[in-house]
Simulated scan of single mutants.
Amino acid sequence: MIMLVHYNKVGTVSLGRSAFVGRNKRSALRRMANTFGAMRFAYCALHGLREKGVMALLVATALVVTSPAWAAGEDKIAVAYPDIGEPYRAIFEKIVEGIEDRANSRVVKYAVKPSADSAELKTALRRQDARVVIALGRQGMKAVTPDRGMAMVVGGVVTVPESEARGLSVVSLSPDPALLFARLKVLMPAAKRVHVVYDLRHNAWLMRLAREAARAQGLELVAYEAQDLRGAMQQYQAIFAVVDSRTDALWLPQDITTVEEGSVLPLVLQESWNRSLTVFSSTFGHVRRGVLFALYPDNVALGKSLAGLALGILASGNHGEHGMMPLRDVRIAVNLRTAQHLGLDLRRQQPSFDLVFPEP
């Protein structure tokens, strides 16, 4: 790091940006940094730049960096997140914590109420000169209407229609199938086939990824489409009629049509238990109810990843990867009672689990 030290006429020393040079000299130095870049300016400083009492000293022997507190022309990253009650408030606060950890002083936060005025928020974003907006949750996404030249990253949503996701970078709360299938093979090495029921309108993008991920793990993915509750029930009955519990497993994606909590899930859990069929899920709450395992978000790590996307956009000027992306910042929860019922010995692997049920 470079510190500028100003020796004034009476021999006292002042440190920091507010006192190291006079107004004119400060403006000149700032223009110099803008013109030649912070690294070239630091290079000059290292070689003993002196002009009318200004001396640059090297005060740390490491990489030369500029302090975000006084770097000229620093672009801002706005974060729009829902202003809602618990337990969801704590989740979004952790995501924001991760964003701030990664992006530091660039972050400007906006808590968005359901009645938020999009025009007012847009004016506020323009006033802050925000170049990238991270919108969290459906509420945050709906409130933001970015200006031309303002990129948008979305997180904390399960899915977005692919037509709406074009031109955006959307990190879903649906775990990456590659991570799910890799974990399945570790917990159930005999697995050869994975069954899944999904609604094409919500999860077509996820199934494309799932097919590739299954091939990579030597698994056969058998995907069944359903567009309503009745169709989903029929597909599950068809699955239960043909499964081999020794080598088959059932995946429950985040899908409001095919993994409906009131009637579909209880049926699936009961029939799977009766047949000793391994069921794994993309929803944390299902583990408590009896599925073998689920992957769920590491919220702070997710925030850091969202900030990384935003910083990448600022650095390159390129909006980068567009459309829906799966969640890769995950933790694992495992139901040990279900594992015992299935004849799986997970004692050696238990230290790697983030949460276990039943709780000790």
Rank of each mutant, 00 (worst) to 15 (best):
M3F: 02
M3C: 06
V5R: 14
H6W: 08
G11E: 06
V13F: 01
A19E: 15
V21D: 02
N24E: 14
S27L: 15
R30V: 10
M32N: 07
A33K: 00
G37N: 07
F41E: 06
L49Y: 13
E51K: 08
K52V: 02
L57G: 14
A60G: 11
A69Q: 14
W70T: 15
I77W: 06
V79M: 11
Y81C: 10
E86S: 06
E86D: 07
P87T: 11
I91L: 12
F92H: 07
F92W: 07
I95P: 02
S105H: 03
S105M: 08
V107M: 05
V108M: 11
K109M: 13
Y110K: 11
S115C: 06
D117M: 05
S118P: 06
S118A: 15
E120R: 13
L121Y: 09
R127V: 12
R131Y: 04
V132K: 09
V132Y: 08
V133W: 08
V144A: 12
T145E: 11
D147T: 07
R148A: 15
G149T: 12
A151N: 15
A151H: 14
V153C: 05
V153S: 03
V154C: 02
G156N: 04
G156Q: 01
P161S: 04
R166Q: 13
L168K: 15
V170A: 02
L173Q: 03
S174W: 01
D176G: 11
A178I: 00
L180R: 06
L187S: 04
M188L: 12
A191Q: 01
K192I: 03
V196Y: 02
V197I: 05
N203E: 02
R215G: 08
A216E: 13
Q217F: 01
G218Y: 01
A223I: 02
A223W: 00
E225A: 15
A226K: 03
Q227Y: 10
A232K: 05
Q235H: 08
Q237F: 00
V243H: 05
R246M: 01
R246L: 02
A249G: 06
L250G: 09
W251M: 13
P253Y: 03
D255L: 06
E261F: 05
L265D: 03
L265P: 03
L265N: 09
E271M: 07
S276C: 08
S281T: 02
S281C: 02
H286G: 04
H286S: 10
R289N: 10
R289T: 04
L295F: 06
Y296W: 04
D298E: 09
V300Q: 13
L302V: 00
S305C: 03
A307I: 13
G308C: 00
A310H: 01
A310I: 00
L311R: 03
I313S: 00
A315G: 10
H319I: 10
H319T: 14
G323H: 09
M325H: 15
L327P: 01
L327T: 07
R328M: 06
R328N: 08
I332W: 08
L336A: 03
T338H: 07
T338P: 08
H341M: 11
L344V: 06
L346R: 05
Q350D: 04
L355N: 11
V356Y: 10
F357S: 09
